[in-house]
């Protein structure tokens, strides 16, 4: 089996994987990082969004081997263990931006990518447009949109423009 090595949440990791192993499988099954979810078979729901070299991508539509040498950040990489939540996570909690929570890791990773591309002052229209690739079956999006606007602002205050990358 081919070997793969990459940096996940700041740690160097390696593994032997079949070529067909998706990045999301490698994260969940080899590394036991089960915060990244799989919600569909058609690359449409966004539950699996992680950052590859700082850019949001669907880990269900990326092979682990395509990430050889890359820096990958997952939802587990945003806050220190037992430390305070990342401002975007805190904003989801504060604004009740989740119900069942299945979509939430993907939403938060996508939200950070919106901040990367569009800055910290986000209007509702921009957020809704930019969430095109993330589906939530519970909330009706209203509080997710509020949470992202608030999280983006809080990141500017805390000087945290990005995830942990």
């Amino acid at each position: 089996m081919p070997a793969v090595s990459m940096t996940v949440n700041g740690k160097a990791v390696t593994g032997d994987v079949e070529a067909r192993t998706l990045l999301v499988q490698f994260l969940r099954e080899n590394l036991r990082l089960t915060g990244t979810h799989v919600g569909c078979d058609t690359s449409q729901c966004g539950a699996c969004v992680v950052h590859i070299d700082g850019i949001a991508a669907k880990s269900c539509t990326t092979l682990a081997l395509q990430c050889e040498g890359a820096k990958v950040t997952t939802i587990e990489g945003l806050a220190e263990p037992n430390g305070p939540l990342h401002p975007m996570q805190e904003a989801f909690r504060e604004n009740h931006g989740l119900q069942c929570g299945f979509c939430t890791p993907g939403m938060i990773m996508a939200a950070l990518d919106i901040v990367r591309r569009r800055g910290n002052d986000l209007d509702e229209h921009t957020i809704r447009e930019q969430l095109d690739g993330n589906i939530c079956r519970c909330t009706g999006y209203h509080n997710i949109v509020k949470a992202i606007a608030a999280g983006a602002k809080a990141m500017a205050k805390g000087g945290a423009h990005q995830a942990a990358e």
Binding site: S43, G46, A56, A57, K58, D113, D132, G133
Partner: peptide, 9 residues
Amino acid sequence: IGDPQVRNR
């Protein structure tokens, strides 16, 4: 095209 994540890849 598609959504932001699709456009990123």
